[in-house]
Simulated scan of single mutants.
Amino acid sequence: MDSEQPDPPPKARHRAHNRPARPYAVLLRLSEEEKAAIDAAAAVAQLTATGYAAKAAVAAASGVQALGGATGDLRDLQHELFAARRAVVMFGNNVNQAAAAFNASGQLPDWATEAVRLCAAAVARLDEVISRIDRNLR
């Protein structure tokens, strides 16, 4: 395994634009903590913070109105999350390869500590989301 740094995260994408443009805007006032939480979630979703906030607001509003018909959508989402979790676990295996490199050479790659932290945080977050979805489906 190379000691190269992992690739940087992909650039945030804008959500699909409507033509003509959406006619309404909503102003959000956030604390530093709230803004940081939205920025982090938007980065994970590979969206801009504004696009993420808009999608989340519309999804929340739509979910309140049509929760009963969303079971199929939740099942699809649950399957996607299981697949994503498997991918994160595979990333964890790559971290194990870094540990093997350390055992062989006595040197831990520079990126290994951060990779372990990111992997553990991602698995914990995915487990939390999957548990919430599972509770809603029961």
Rank of each mutant, 00 (worst) to 15 (best):
Val116Ala: 12
Trp111Arg: 04
Asn94Phe: 13
Ala100Cys: 12
Val88Trp: 07
Phe102Cys: 02
Ala87Phe: 06
Thr113Ala: 11
Cys119Val: 11
Gln97Pro: 00
Met90Asp: 13
Ala87Pro: 00
Cys119Pro: 08
Arg117Gln: 14
Val88Ile: 07
Ala99Thr: 09
Thr113Asn: 07
Ala120Glu: 15
Ala104Trp: 04
Glu114Cys: 03
Gly106Met: 04
Phe102Met: 04
Met90Val: 09
Leu118Trp: 13
Ala98Ile: 00
Phe102Asp: 01
Gly92Glu: 07
Gly92Phe: 05
Gln107Tyr: 14
Gln97Gly: 02
Ala104Tyr: 06
Val116Thr: 15
Ala100Gly: 12
Gln97Lys: 05
Arg117Phe: 14
Ser105His: 03
Ser105Arg: 01
Val88Thr: 08
Ala112His: 05
Leu118Asn: 12
Ala99Gln: 11
Ala112Cys: 05
Ala121Met: 15
Thr113Phe: 10
Val89Leu: 04
Ala98Arg: 00
Phe91Trp: 14
Ala98Cys: 03
Leu118Arg: 14
Val116Pro: 01
Glu114Ser: 08
Leu118Pro: 01
Ser105Thr: 09
Ala99Met: 08
Val88Ala: 12
Asn94Met: 13
Val88Leu: 05
Phe91Ile: 08
Glu114Leu: 08
Asn93Lys: 11
Asn103Ile: 02
Thr113Gln: 11
Val89Trp: 09
Ala115Val: 05
Asn94Cys: 10
Trp111Gly: 03
Leu118Tyr: 12
Trp111Ser: 05
Asn96Gln: 10
Gln107Arg: 14
Gln97Tyr: 04
Asp110Ser: 09
Trp111Cys: 05
Phe102Ser: 00
Asn94Tyr: 15
Arg117Trp: 14
Ser105Pro: 01
Phe102Thr: 03
Asp110Thr: 05
Val116Asp: 11
Asn93Arg: 14
Ala99Ile: 07
Ala104Thr: 09
Arg117Met: 10
Ala120Asp: 15
Ala101Ile: 01
Val89Tyr: 10
Asn93Met: 06
Met90Ile: 08
Gln97His: 09
Gln107Phe: 13
Phe91Ala: 10
Ala112Lys: 00
Ser105Tyr: 03
Pro109Ser: 03
Thr113Met: 07
Val89Cys: 01
Cys119Phe: 15
Ala99Trp: 12
Gln107Thr: 12
Arg117Asp: 14
Ala101Ser: 08
Gln97Asp: 05
Gly106Glu: 05
Pro109His: 01
Gln107Ile: 10
Val116Ile: 13
Ala112Ile: 01
Thr113Gly: 07
Asn94His: 15
Ala104His: 06
Phe102Arg: 04
Trp111Asn: 04
Ala121Pro: 09
Ala115Lys: 04
Phe91Cys: 04
Ala100His: 14
Arg117Pro: 03
